[in-house]
Nucleic acid binder design. Structure first.
Lengths: 244, 244
DNA sequence: GTCTATATAGCGATAGAC
DNA sequence: GTCTATCGCTATATAGAC
């Protein structure tokens, strides 16, 4: 276990060195990529995702169309990058919050709220993230193999939020997946919510959190142990839970 | 050149005669529409949805591309029509089952099973139904305004399945929506399930049904009345339940 | 490795024939 | 109303310049 951590650290160092080198020698590339990315997001916000063409993006960035395709396989990849950026921001924000927040309720609320805040007015853009949810082979399906990493990162945030509480092993397996699913559902609601600052969905999230905590305290009762075991078994068989 | 014109005229006369004849027998328009629809499904099954072009569809049907667009705004509309056909089939099958099946468990199982059976090997095609789920304004978003009718029909099937049981009013409001959501979730799992006949998802559906019935009997306890009220209030405020 | 210029093919709209 | 023929626009692959 320790050696794996060392390896990870080493890889990280090498990556940093490589990034540093390319930043010195050909910083142009990262700059162009950034230019294309920023131009695309501008246009997506102005005209919407579907109305924006890669030609538009390239023109706005002042490069040839091929350059845009060189950095991003298509428009969807740009949105994908944007979603990953949001995920990184959420991790940073939550880590800060977790440092001084030791109440489970507030920690989970911080996770939900941070995501809502980060998406903010870009709701219309984020809808595209769900576009290939029904197509397993699609590399950018938000439920598929190709997005496993970012999904795990998202679940890890919940795992860390839960770390403040001493929980039975089966719930430690179950809860991150359940909370991630809840978050995905809430995100869809968020996209459909036209109330100011999506306050309707934010209230729903608060209520859902409240209910979840109530169910959690109920689930801890020995009386409900068998029902918990049944649920766990069912979800495990359906391969909806991690193996560990 | 003159002979070509003559030939064209002759062909035209024959076409008119043919149109007249078929118009008498079966209605040319409906026939063409059906031809395009059938050809499209054939091709979707052979090559997949994305690899099939409207030109392919038109060629297979023996019509011009414009004719295909005349009947269907695009490929998505054909899939949409297919999904509605499946919904109609499900209603027919369930109505037959409901006539002689009076156990709630078996009635609900009939609803789930019929959907699975009807989709069957067309899983890959059905993924497209979820494509615009994250885009509220899209007319064929499976969660949007444009598909409200078919969504209500789908919930009505559950409503009829439940009609065999005497239930409190709040649960009558809640359960069809909850079961419909469960079905949608199971459908996504079904798309991702590569086990034979998607037996893994079918088992999950059975288990989820079992648990739902257990929760239902628990929910009826007077003890849980306040939690039920809270849940109902939360979902009503979030506009996730019908007004009635 | 980074990017331009070009080529192919599909989408979807349109004018107009019947 | 039904359908054909055609056109402009776009996505994306590719050759090759730097």
């Amino acid at each position: 276990m320790q050696s794996k951590k060392d390896l990870t650290a080493l890889v990280s160092v090498i990556q940093n060195l490589t990034m540093f080198k390319t930043a010195l020698s050909t910083g142009k590339a990262e700059q162009t990529r950034r230019l294309i990315y920023d131009s695309a997001l501008e246009l997506f916000r102005e005209k919407g995702f579907d109305a924006t063409t890669m030609q538009d993006v390239a023109s706005r960035a002042g490069v040839a169309k091929g350059a845009a395709y060189y950095y991003f396989p298509g428009k969807e990849a740009i949105i994908q990058a944007y979603y990953e950026a949001i995920q990184s921001d959420q991790e940073r924000i939550c880590n800060e919050a977790f440092a001084h927040e030791k109440s489970l309720r507030n920690r989970l609320k911080a996770v939900f709220d941070s995501k809502f805040d980060l998406i903010g007015d870009d709701r219309r853009l984020l809808g595209v993230v769900f576009r290939y949810a029904g197509e397993p082979e699609n590399p950018i399906s938000c439920l598929g193999k190709g997005t496993e990493d970012i999904r795990n990162r998202s679940m890890d945030v919940f795992r860390q939020a839960l770390a403040v509480e001493k929980l039975p092993a089966d719930l430690v397996r179950l809860l991150p997946v359940a909370l991630w699913s809840l978050q995905m559902g809430l995100l869809v609601m968020f996209l459909y919510d036209n109330t100011k600052r999506q306050v309707r969905t934010r209230r729903l999230a608060d209520g859902a959190l409240e209910l979840s905590l109530k169910f959690l305290s109920l689930a801890k009762l020995p009386l409900l142990r068998p029902v918990r075991a049944k649920l766990l078994g069912l979800l495990t068989e359906a391969q909806l839970l991690p193996e560990n």
